[in-house]
Design a protein around this nucleic acid. Sequence first.
DNA 1: GCTGAAAGCGGCTTCAT
DNA 2: ATGAAGCCGCTTTCAGC
Lengths: 144, 144
Amino acid sequence: MDAVDRAVLTELAADPRLPTAELARRVEVSVPTARDRLRRLQESGVIRGYHLDVDPAALGYPVAAFVRVRPGPGQLPKIAELARSLPQVSECHRITGEDCFLIKVHAADVGSFEETLDRFLLHGQTTTSIIQSTPVPPRTPGLG
Amino acid sequence: MDAVDRAVLTELAADPRLPTAELARRVEVSVPTARDRLRRLQESGVIRGYHLDVDPAALGYPVAAFVRVRPGPGQLPKIAELARSLPQVSECHRITGEDCFLIKVHAADVGSFEETLDRFLLHGQTTTSIIQSTPVPPRTPGLG
DNA sequence: GCTGAAAGCGGCTTCAT
DNA sequence: ATGAAGCCGCTTTCAGC
């Protein structure tokens, strides 16, 4: 992870669809070098992948919420499994604290959360926080 | 948003770096059609962008936490501003409930959260939950 | 290990249907 | 929306430093 690697990451973060040749130009190294650096960053797992950012509203989910779930006794694996199986869930984290899971849930309107929450309520208690806005959209930490 | 549009989104979600020609092949439409669909999806805001997924550990942040912040009186804008300015913050949402913000914070180790939390404690109360694992990594809701 | 050039392949654009 | 044609650019590989 030297300056060239960081420059590759910074440029690719700015535009993940950048072709290798253009990437080389911006980082100011030769094409084979850029290509090798990129390959190594991918194979070593520094670059985990690429994501398409789709507006959930266009897919019928204009509202989103973070739901904390505190599982009942023995219900912990079922909650993770349920989260994975629901298309309304876009994220699920195991966390420390009184609640064991933090789940991002999407819905057609504020009322529609009920159905999804009911599925989780079978296995524990839930605390729901509607997302009103996102002052800092997802970004890579530490890349300026 | 017809079946072709959804197919374009599904294929691009699977591999965001897919060239237009290859995309056309997989969706089974002509190249100009795929190109036009993609252009319209981007210009209409259905596709908000593309993201590079970098392992934060490689950048010196092996641990992450979700921090809820309840602002003191009049401190609300300052917290959003602070979140935006800190490279350790990769996400910040305004939410409903007792706490006003949900912030994703990254650190070099469990102890290092202290410094970042202190910055937020100047403007309110914090509740921290370390991320232990991520059973469902970020994905697009409603795309299978 | 990085550079620069050459060859081959493929994507991009435009046009006519 | 399709299919073909031509141009341009990317990728790969090689020799050299």
